[in-house]
Design a protein around this nucleic acid. Sequence first.
DNA 1: CTTGACAGCGTAAACGTTTACGTATATAAT
DNA 2: ATTATATACGTAAACGTTTACGCTGTCAAG
Lengths: 339, 339
Amino acid sequence: MPVTLQDIAQELDVSIATVSRALRNMPGVAESTRQLVLKAAREQGYYPNLAAQQLQRQRTDTIGFIIPTFGPRFSDPFFSELLAGIGNATAEAEFDLLVSTVAPGKDELKGYRRLVAGRRVDGLLVVRTRRQDQRIAYLLAEDFPFVAFGRTDLTANFPYVGVDGQRGLFQLVEHLIHQGHRHIAFLNAPAELMFAQHRLAGYRQALAAHGIPYDENLLRLGGLTETDGYRAGRQLFCLGTQKPTAVCASNDLMALGVMRAARECGLQVGIDVAIAGFDDIPLVKMTHPPLTSVHQPIYQIGRLICEKLLCMLRGEELAEPQTLLLPELVVRESTDYRV
Amino acid sequence: MPVTLQDIAQELDVSIATVSRALRNMPGVAESTRQLVLKAAREQGYYPNLAAQQLQRQRTDTIGFIIPTFGPRFSDPFFSELLAGIGNATAEAEFDLLVSTVAPGKDELKGYRRLVAGRRVDGLLVVRTRRQDQRIAYLLAEDFPFVAFGRTDLTANFPYVGVDGQRGLFQLVEHLIHQGHRHIAFLNAPAELMFAQHRLAGYRQALAAHGIPYDENLLRLGGLTETDGYRAGRQLFCLGTQKPTAVCASNDLMALGVMRAARECGLQVGIDVAIAGFDDIPLVKMTHPPLTSVHQPIYQIGRLICEKLLCMLRGEELAEPQTLLLPELVVRESTDYRV
DNA sequence: CTTGACAGCGTAAACGTTTACGTATATAAT
DNA sequence: ATTATATACGTAAACGTTTACGCTGTCAAG
C-alpha cells in the first residue's frame, strides 16, 4: 500500500500538517523537523497522491489534446510532428499530457465536455480549426483556457497560432506558373476546415494574378488521407484534354496519393506532371522524387501553442495572443522542370 | 463555477447521497426521485469532478504510455503507429491516455515513479524493452499492472507482446542470400535493446545456415534515427573490397538513411546495392524504390498491449499473458534483383 | 514584569465524491 | 394485532491532500 502523509506523521509523532509543510518547503517548520520528515519520507518512499492534490489544489497540471480524426487511426505524420512538439513542451513545464481522439461530429463535444466539465485538464489545445468551430465556441462560452492551431470565422477573439495558408498557396501556384504550367489542379481539404478557405483563396489569387481562368473541374476535395489523394489523382489524370499538368494538394499525404496515382497512370512525377504538397512533413524529403511542399514548422507550432497555453495557465498575460506564421515554399524535384 | 452534487442536492432538497445514487443508477432511489435528479443535473449541467472520483474510487481510468526517446522529439513513425493503436483501444474502453516522454537513463525511473507512486494511472505500457530493463524490474517490484511490447533477459514473468525478430531477420537475410548476396551488412540497434539481440541472432543464424562467415566489419550499431542510418551507410559504402552488396537495418528509419547515403555515393538502390529495413512502417511503400522490410503489425500491437492491460485492470485473468507474433517479410524493389 | 512578536506546531475544515450503515415509512406475512 | 421485509432516504466516514486558524512557548523590547 502506498505511504501517505498520515503514515509519516504517525512514525514521527507529528501532525499531518507539519509533514505536508515540511515536504512542500513551507515556512513554519523547524529545520530539524523538516530534516526528519524528509528522511522518513525518503525511507518510506512517500509520493503524494496526485488525485488528492488535484482535488485540493483545484488544478491538474495536465493539458489535454484531442486529435480530431476520422477513421480508426490517427497515425498521420502531421499529428505526430505536432504531438512531438506538444509533448516536449509539456514535459519541460512538468505538466502531463492527456491525449485522446474523437471524430468530428455530433459526439465530438462530449469529449471536450468530459475533460472540461470533469476538470480533468487545466487547458486544451484545439487543432484543425473549422469555420464555425463548435469546440471553440464551447470553450469560449465556458471560459476555459485553450489555444488553437488555426483561425476560425467566429467573430470572437481567442489565442491561436496560425499559418498564412493563402500566402503559402499563392507562392506555390505562382512557382508552378513560372514553371510554365497553365492547368493547375488543386486538391483541397473539406470546405469546413478553416485552412481550406485560406489556401483556396491563395490558389485563386495566384491564378487571377497571372490571368489564368479558374476552372472548377480542376478543384477537388479530399479528406486528407493518402487514399483520398490517390482517388482524386486517378480522376484528374483521366480528364483528357483538360488534364492538369500540375497538381497541388492541401497536405503532403494527399500529394503522395496523387503521386501514386500518377505513377499508375504511367506519368513520371516531375517530368510528365508536377505535384506539390503542403506541410512539408519530414518524410517528403525521402520520397521519389522528393516532393515540393509548403513548409510549416509543425513541431515548433506544437511547442508554441503549448507554451502559450502554459503561459495562460500561469496567469500571465500573453505578449502575443495571436500569431500568424509565414510559410515557406520548398521546391524539390517533383516540380523542378519547365513545361 | 462548476456544479457539484451538493448544488443539485440543495436544489431538490435531498441528500448528496441520493443524488449520487440516482446519477450512478444505483438501487435505493425511487424512480420519481431519480428522474428529478437527472433533470436537475441536465439543467444545471452537472459533470462529476474526476479528481474527486479518482480519489474516492482509488482508480483513475487512465493508462500511461511513456515514450522512451532520446533527443528532443518523438516523431518516430514507429511510435506514431503504436500510439494510434493504443489511443484507439483506450478510447473504446473509455479510458484516458496519458502520454509522456522520458529519455532512457538515470532519470527515467523518476517518470515511472511519478505515475506509479502518484497513482496517476492505473496501468502502464512499456515499450522498447531492454535486456535488463529497470523499468520492468521496478514495476514488478511495485506489483503495478503493466504490459510490455518486447521481452527481456529478466527471469521474471510478465505479460508482453513480442515479435520474433530472430525469425524475421533470418527470413530477410536468407532472402538476400537467395538473391546472390554474400556481403550482407547489418545495421543493428544498440545492444541493450532486447530486440537487437534477437535480430542479431537471426542474422548470424542465417549466415551460418548458408556457410557464410560472419564478418564483424559488416555489423554496425545505430540509434534508430535516419541520421544514424545515413552515417553508417557512408561508412559501409567506403569499405573498399569488403563493401557490402546488401544492407539490412534494424528499423526502417535507419534503412532510409542508408538509402540516402547510397544515393550520395552514386549507388542505385535496388541495382547497385540492396537495402532492407524492419518494421514496415506505412511510409516505406512510398519511398523510391519501395523498401523491402520485415513487417510487424505495429498498430495491432498497440491495440493488443493496450487490450491486455485493460483486461488486467478489469481483474480478468489473461488468456494468453505472453504473445509472440511472427513477422512477415515483405519484399519490394529495394532488394528485388539477383546479383 | 508586562506586552508583543514570532517560530513551531496541531486542529479542523475544506476539495467532491462514494458507500457502509442507520432510520423511517410502507407493505406483506404471521 | 405484531413482526418481518423491503423501499427510500439521510448521516457520516472515508479517499489524501492543503491551508486558514488557533494555541503554546520563547525571547526581546518596553
